[in-house]
Design a protein around this nucleic acid. Sequence first.
DNA 1: TATTGAGTTGAATGATCAATCAAATTATTT
DNA 2: AAATAATTTGATTGATCATTCAACTCAATA
Lengths: 191, 191
Amino acid sequence: MTKAENTTRQKIVETARALFHEQGYHATGMATILRLAGVNSGSLYHFFPSKEALLEAVLESYLGGLGPMLIDPVEAAFGDPVERIFGLLDQYRQALLMTDFSYGCPIGNLALEMGADDGDVARLIADNFAAWRDAIEGWLSAAFSAKDVDISGLTALTLAVMEGALMQARVAKKIEPFDEAVAQYRKMLGT
Amino acid sequence: MTKAENTTRQKIVETARALFHEQGYHATGMATILRLAGVNSGSLYHFFPSKEALLEAVLESYLGGLGPMLIDPVEAAFGDPVERIFGLLDQYRQALLMTDFSYGCPIGNLALEMGADDGDVARLIADNFAAWRDAIEGWLSAAFSAKDVDISGLTALTLAVMEGALMQARVAKKIEPFDEAVAQYRKMLGT
DNA sequence: TATTGAGTTGAATGATCAATCAAATTATTT
DNA sequence: AAATAATTTGATTGATCATTCAACTCAATA
């Protein structure tokens, strides 16, 4: 499935993904998506019945891109599972610095903005989180399965550090909270 | 300052606070605020020049309420500084369970939804986070200042666990990720 | 080449958005 | 009681919202 996608559809999803990430879902108007994608409204609604359906496509593209875009590169760069976790954290760190602290986790942003939601969107956000969980849990298992460690709990804590550290740095517009939280997390893993 | 506030103004701020929390800022229309507050638009705009100004008032009310509504009760209930932290976490836990996992941190929600923002709103969100930081840092200092601990880093990690654990439980619609993350955090504090 | 259907055009729709304002009312001060 | 100020009324505004649709183009197939 999802082989050699239509180019107009792709353009729409990628434009929407960028705008939803930068501005949020509600703050992004269809007119802006259409203008930046260089597409007419009829074309968009030929592929997507609604704005919400477009958001669902964006969330599916995040889900599909998680492996090839994030997990795989990190696994290629680092052999040690623990280093892989910090490699992922460093990706966030770089994104924060490069965007002057405007970068946020796309899934985390949508999760909190769409918190009220209860339909396909909520399910897709949960699916995305679950995929992240699985990747991190796999690494932690590889590193600590022999020892007496609660892998599931450590995974939850790891995700919490990622999202929470990112949020703090973004709000404070400085990298220190992120670095400090990660340093503490690293120390904890060491013991 | 802020002595014996006008009742109409209060009603508006409290209604807006509830709606912004439940639905988010952009998803909440002024018409809904007006209807639920039982107030006419002219009255609202007599007190607040814009929707954004109303959000600023809401954020100021969060800032003012942090001590009396959250910190003080927890400090009254628990003497031990570490227990106070877990008392605060338990407040979140109860809120999650009572709302069927729809409860989110009001400040965290707004922080991620308004991430693009760069004006007074962003400053007020940062002020709120700073106030939370100060409270937690005070407790951690009382507990660990003697020992060789990075209090600032531990504070950042604590906040990250709060926000990150809440986010995960909300998305997964189950308490386990929250409990697991907190359990790991507790174990870490013990060592 | 005729037919079919996927894709595109872009103006138009009604709903909802935040915000306005002159007039009326109520509260405060003189 | 008169004058002034603060607050409230609520219809109305223009902008923007997501969405629709009939007409059109173009590529694939028969």
